[in-house]
Write a protein that binds this DNA or RNA. Structure first.
Length: 580
DNA sequence: GCCGTTTTCGGCCCGACTGTTTTCAGTCG
């Protein structure tokens, strides 16, 4: 994320927290929170958007917010925030993130018990003084203490790629309860957000079975704590420290509930707003006429969207970022789907740092129904990854040739590939006469991040044999921010040279924001798993989700092309660069 | 604080769970 966006969003979030503590108008507070949310999700630098005048046109950014943004860009801070923070102990406000603790609780502790710090608060919980206040009791205090424990263990959101298998496992377990009619992942996970706070699961079943379903849910073997258990909603914490929420709805409400619990919040508020204008009411049970409460539908998501007058919107782009306007005009783009994917361009074997033999990797790719796979082990300078010398690649090719003889009759092709290192000066780790013999070449930066990486990548793309830039920005979600990179130049050069940019599933690099820029520029991208184990290969579906979140259509995704299309992509670059 | 071909004032999404209540407040999503 852009640094200024992050800082500004944090200031607005803090203003909201303080105002809430002070008991200000809830709608004003909501406005600050929405602004914070919007700014943190902006695909571009806030300063840039301000300069081009696009900022004030965003929904929820009014004149007062604009003034504060201007002030921030000019001075680096906002006076209102500086004034407000003097009125509340900062330490105390952090506690608002504790599950079960809100502004009212903190305010009472502050007023009645003189609580000023986290330690004060914990002391008030433990010595029973908070429990004595009206509206409080032993249970509430106990829950808050549990909340603090949870909060300390789950401070960070986890990467999509970690959360997804976790959620799939819960879904799989819940299918074991026979009264479950429909089940789906919901929330930010269904929207394929890069990081996930907690996991939402939705189930449709007959009302009489709900209790049994929740009983089953809390018995999931990974559960370490039960936070809540009801007829419609239960929450648990897994041993991994992750919270999972399960909700049950009647089958006739399935679509409305799935729509509702998928979010995003901004998207849903907008949808309900539109519904209201049409005299309708949308909630998790269905779509109703506002005046008579007559139920109009809600069994499927398509029906919900249709009833409010628009086409269905893919979950990955439900962020109120223009998708609703397009849906009203029936012109939401057809996004790339898993079934369009014909191969993977970047996987490792135990020839370098993968854990499986090439034979197993190839077999797994074949079983996924692909038409081709690019075996792309590291090149020699990646010593820690056991990178391959030209001689070892030639040995590997003999095996690839042999495998091809076995698999080609079944319509499956193994391509000679490499993930060649881009060296500090932008040259490549293998000579051209070797690169020429590969079917497909991925080039990536793996070290010396302090160099001019824009230059390195541009230079690598000028090589006629480089077909794909691996994890272009160097970002690895949850581990490393990307290095500074002039993305505009990279996009321009990719387009000019006919080089693809990588959507790396594990690193979420490219990010959805950058993917969207590529889509707009018509730059070709390849979705890859960068699998280091056969178990990683099926995560292509997560990669497709990330691509969809960046509004990627099949035409800009290289994996949607068949083998001859891929060969054509490689050959046309070689021809083009030879001429140039 | 935002927003407006029904409004420049008066609305703003809304239901579930928990614990403390005897009809509801606080928190959450």
């Amino acid at each position: 994320m852009h640094k200024k966006n992050k800082e500004l969003a944090r200031i607005f979030e803090k203003i909201a927290d303080i105002l809430e503590f002070l008991g200000d108008n809830p709608y004003r507070i909501g406005t600050y929170r929405r602004a914070a949310n919007l700014i943190s999700e902006l695909p571009e630098d806030v300063e840039e958007l301000y300069r081009t005048g696009k900022l004030s046109r965003l929904p929820g950014i009014g004149s007062s917010t604009m003034l504060k943004i201007e002030e921030f860009l000019r001075t680096g801070t906002v006076k209102k925030y500086e004034d407000l923070r003097k009125r509340v102990p900062e330490d105390l406000l952090d506690l608002m993130d504790v599950p079960g603790v809100g502004p009212k609780t903190l305010r009472v502790a502050y007023d009645k018990l003189g609580v000023r710090t986290k330690e004060d608060f914990i002391k008030a919980l433990k010595d029973g003084s908070l429990a004595k206040l009206p509206g409080f009791g032993p249970k509430k205090v106990e829950n808050i203490l549990k909340g603090i424990e949870l909060w300390r263990s789950v401070q960070e959101r986890i990467p999509l790629i970690e959360a997804y298998p976790m959620a799939e496992d819960v879904v799989e377990y819940m299918r074991g309860e026979k009264s479950v009619k429909e089940i789906s992942i919901a929330g930010s996970l269904r929207r394929m957000k890069e990081t996930i706070g907690d996991i939402d699961i939705l189930v449709a079943a007959e009302k009489k079975d709900w209790r049994r379903i929740h009983e089953h849910f809390v018995k999931y073997p990974e559960v370490s704590k039960i936070l809540a258990k009801g007829e419609t909603k239960s929450s648990v914490v897994l041993r991994s420290g992750r919270q999972v929420d399960l909700r049950t709805v009647e089958p006739k409400s399935w679509g409305a509930a799935l729509q509702y619990f998928t979010g995003s919040k901004e998207h849903n508020i907008r949808i309900r707003d539109i519904a209201k204008e049409k005299g309708l009411k949308v909630n998790e049970y269905g779509v109703f006429r506002a005046d008579t409460d007559e139920r109009l539908g809600g069994e499927t998501e398509e029906e919900v969207y249709r009833l409010v007058g628009m086409q269905w919107i893919p979950p990955e782009i439900r962020e109120n970022w223009g998708e609703i306007e397009l849906a009203l005009e029936n012109s939401v783009p057809e996004l790339v789907e898993l079934k369009d994917i014909k191969g993977d361009f970047h996987v490792h074997t135990n020839w370098s740092d993968g854990i499986n033999p090439i034979e197993e990797v190839v077999e797994q790719a074949y079983r996924l129904g692909y038409q081709y796979i690019v075996v792309g082990d590291h090149s020699q300078s990646a010593r820690v990854a056991n990178g391959l010398t030209p001689e070892r690649y030639r040995e590997q090719w003999k095996i690839i040739d042999k495998l091809n003889r076995a698999y080609n009759p079944k319509g499956f092709y193994i391509l000679r590939g490499a993930e060649v290192d881009i060296l500090p000066d932008g040259s490549l780790d293998l000579p051209d006469e070797v690169l020429e013999e590969f079917d497909f070449v991925v080039a990536s930066i793996h070290s010396r991040f302090n160099q001019d990486n824009t230059y390195r990548i541009l230079k690598a793309m000028e090589n006629p044999y480089v077909n794909l830039v691996g994890h272009p920005t160097g970002r690895a979600y949850g581990q490393r921010e990307g290095y500074p990179l002039d993305m505009e130049k990279v996009i321009e050069m990719a387009k000019e040279t006919g080089t693809a940019l990588e959507i790396n599933t594990f690193r979420v690099d490219l990010s959805p924001e950058n993917i969207r820029k590529c889509v707009e520029s018509g730059v070709v991208m390849a979705i890859v798993t960068d699998a280091h184990s056969v178990a990683h290969l099926p995560y292509m579906k997560v990669g497709v989700g990330i691509a969809r979140r960046g509004w990627a259509t099949p035409d800009v995704i290289l994996n949607t092309r068949d083998l001859s299309g891929v060969r054509e992509f490689v050959l046309s670059k070689r021809k083009r660069m030879a001429k140039a």
